[in-house]
Amino acid sequence: MMPASELPLSLEDLELATAEVLGVIGVKFDEYELREGTPERLTARVAIHGASDLDLTIEAPAQVAAAVAAVFFGTDGDGGATTDLPDAMGELANITAGAIKPMLDGHWVIGIPDRFEPQPISSDSAIRAIVPLGRGVVSITVAHSADAPVITEAASVVEGTMS
């Protein structure tokens, strides 16, 4: 396990980048009707490779994920159906990774988002920004990939495609 102090960015940087992204995308709050089978919370992950391998994980309760999905899908979406929420979270992870990248020294490459069920991870080895959003919070965690949670079978619970 690598200590959080060896991560190439500070919690403050992560909070700033996240706050700016969420501020600019302009999430609107409403009572979203969630389809049956929507998980209680949604997660997405994106890898950032460079001087080391990092994982950025983003996690939010379904209502918050629905608000994020509404930004991307508008009324064209399927009203919070199973594919919109994880797809929107994946794109949010991608954009947030882009926002923290300029704060990292050296050359880094952002991977393609995927979704997974996160396992608890020690706060000693990760930094986590908790940003209040509507009726919940979004948490964004950055950790070394070796310490980041592995994909479990739970990932298949959420259907739909996320590329």
Binding site: A19, E20, G23, P132, L133, G134
Partner: peptide, 8 residues
């Protein structure tokens, strides 16, 4: 100004 806290 950017606010990340639309709970206001």
């Amino acid at each position: 100004a950017i606010t990340a806290n639309p709970t206001d």
